[in-house]
Design a protein around this nucleic acid. Structure first.
Lengths: 340, 340
DNA sequence: TTTTCCATGTGAGTTTTTCTCACAGAAAAC
DNA sequence: GTTTTCTGTGAGAAAAACTCACATGGAAAA
């Protein structure tokens, strides 16, 4: 009766040799002689009763049976290596790859990340501008802040924040070409952070201005670009209280109208289950949530409401003021992939 | 510089002990002494620099660090075991445990299983009468034919057959006490294959006889028992074209009315993903589907329709003949767990 | 064509790992 | 309280892993 598992050390030698395509290279990797690898491969072939390599010519070539075995073994050892690497790794040192929606990365995370790195100097963050959930599973990133509906199977996922959308523009632009009513938007370039103008359509619908003639339009692939264009006075973009909050607070962007539109989607934090269990990931995720709370506690409530109230006194034309109904002020919403 | 992988044999001992929650049980499983397991766990803890078990009381309890490690290791070893099992196992030899709904097992699979075993004499089938999906995951059975809605997570699942229900009774019984109309059912014992009479209620509703007075009732835990009672002339049960088809074809049961009722649930074939990949499971599953096709091809279409048409000529009272709408004849439906 | 380099295979001997055995203490069951 | 069952431990035995030295053969360079 053969045991459930093959001899594991010979299996390790097989995996290294197959991956490297060379007995000598595997030997070097595992810090043993080539003879040891050769013996181990033979031992495994004998235990399994199959030929794992074709031996024709100087170098080994994987047999069809060996090719069947390699993927499962590679994955298995990969999983073990990752899990034990986590065990060896102290809670507050090591590297962490973080994926983040581009606009959020530029306008929220990057201005704040020094708070995290100062608190955890042993952690080396690697930031990736991306809204691709597949990068979580493929291990390109360890933790991701994604914009979407949160339905990513096989991941640990938690809602980070809902959003609301509203128009933003550079104060310089609005000084030279004021926005007194929604109709005045036709005099400005509309800056889209999505490719089909869905965000702006949603806002116009809520403003009962879906059929209003529009001026020139600029379409960009993500909200970071449209926001940057707005910052440069190119036109009016749709912002949200999270990514645009600091820009608004610093007066780099102003909010001409009181109307906000809730997004269908939201920001979520996601990671693989095994990563969620790692202390280094946990401290970063905890930091994300507490940072958001701190942002939404005394300061952004003040700045967002003061700001929007200022605008409503100036541009109350056919857009009605939105009742500030919650202590969190007007949450900003946005369309899927548009915040990306 | 620690190697990429921890010592693999100690890791195997850890996994077995953690899974079993017992050093002695792990020792038995791996065919070594408990002392060997104890040493190996210690060696692993030393190599990783962590404590994997809490040692308070008699038995081991997984520590938080151990709990971090176990899932990855279990999965890794599961993948290796599956891959190597494939290598060792010829396609048409070995043992396969099959779970099957009791009625289907007795009246469909057992009369046919010789066809499979004759075709694959090297395969040793083990049959279990059960409709419990948990047995698939817990490895008590390798493949299961289950009656339900097909929603069993973590399993490979494929629809095998939909069903329709209709009354069946022994010809001997009907000779002495004929069924000329639905009202005549009150003169017979109603044989239930479920505990709440839901099947018969469904059929009576379709027959516009939900309020018809009913005679004596016998409730059984599964359709095999109710069918067997019908075979013994105890009364009228609800049958279906799959489990009752052969009985009907052989004249052991007759169908007094033309009305059939579709089931909410169906028969599904289910197995663990790793089992699905095994050639031995694949040949059995393929055989199941081809056998069903062969059953529904020329012969059962003929026998089922001839049979039902015979009844409609005899008992057309207030039950209207069902239009034979498909080449597969009248499919038989039944209620969840009732076919069990 | 010959020479050189580099690859893997192999058997015997050495080292390391795995395992057994016997004893021990403690917890749990009776 | 006694008995059973559990895990831990050190020393020694057995098995696995590894080294070493020799061997063969393929491929590239001269």
């Amino acid at each position: 009766m053969p045991s459930r598992l093959p001899p594991l050390n010979p299996l390790r030698a097989f995996e290294a040799a197959a991956r490297r395509g060379s007995v000598s290279a595997a030997a070097r990797e595992l810090n043993v002689t080539h003879g040891a690898i050769s013996h181990q491969i033979r031992a495994l072939e004998e235990a399994l009763g199959v030929t794992l390599f074709e031996r024709s010519g100087k170098r080994l070539k994987l047999s069809s049976q060996g090719a069947l075995l390699l993927p499962a073994v590679s994955e298995a050892f990969g999983g073990i290596a990752a899990a034990t690497a986590l065990m060896r790794q102290p809670a507050t040192s090591g590297s962490l790859a973080v994926g983040c929606v581009p606009a959020l990365l530029s306008f929220w995370l990057i201005p704040r990340v020094n708070r995290f790195t100062e608190q955890y100097p042993g952690i080396r963050l690697s930031l990736v501008a991306s809204n691709d959930p597949a990068q979580v599973l493929s291990r390109e990133v360890d933790v991701a802040i994604l914009y979407g509906d949160g339905n990513w199977p096989d991941c640990w996922t938690r809602l980070w924040s809902h959003l609301r959308l509203f128009p933003v523009a550079s104060p310089t632009l609005l000084n030279s070409r004021p926005l007194r009513s929604v109709r005045d938007l036709a005099d400005h370039m509309l800056l889209h952070g999505d490719r089909d103008g869905r965000e702006w359509n949603t806002w116009f619908a809520a403003a009962d201005a879906i059929d209003l003639p529009r001026g020139p339009q600029l379409f960009t692939s993500d909200a970071r670009l449209s926001t940057e264009a707005a910052l440069h006075g190119q036109g009016v973009a749709l912002g949200d209280t999270i990514t645009a909050a600091q820009l608004i607070a610093r007066g780099e962007l102003v909010v001409p109208f009181d109307l906000t539109v809730p997004a269908n989607d939201a920001f979520y934090v996601a990671c693989r289950h095994e990563v969620r269990a790692a202390p280094i990931a946990r401290v970063f995720i905890d930091w994300l949530f507490t940072s958001l709370e701190e942002d939404s506690r005394p300061e952004p409530q003040t700045s967002a409401r003061m700001l929007l109230r200022g605008r409503s006194a100036r541009a109350m034309d056919d857009v009605q003021p939105v009742s500030a109904s919650s202590g969190k002020g007007t949450a900003i919403s946005q369309k899927r992939k548009a915040r990306g």
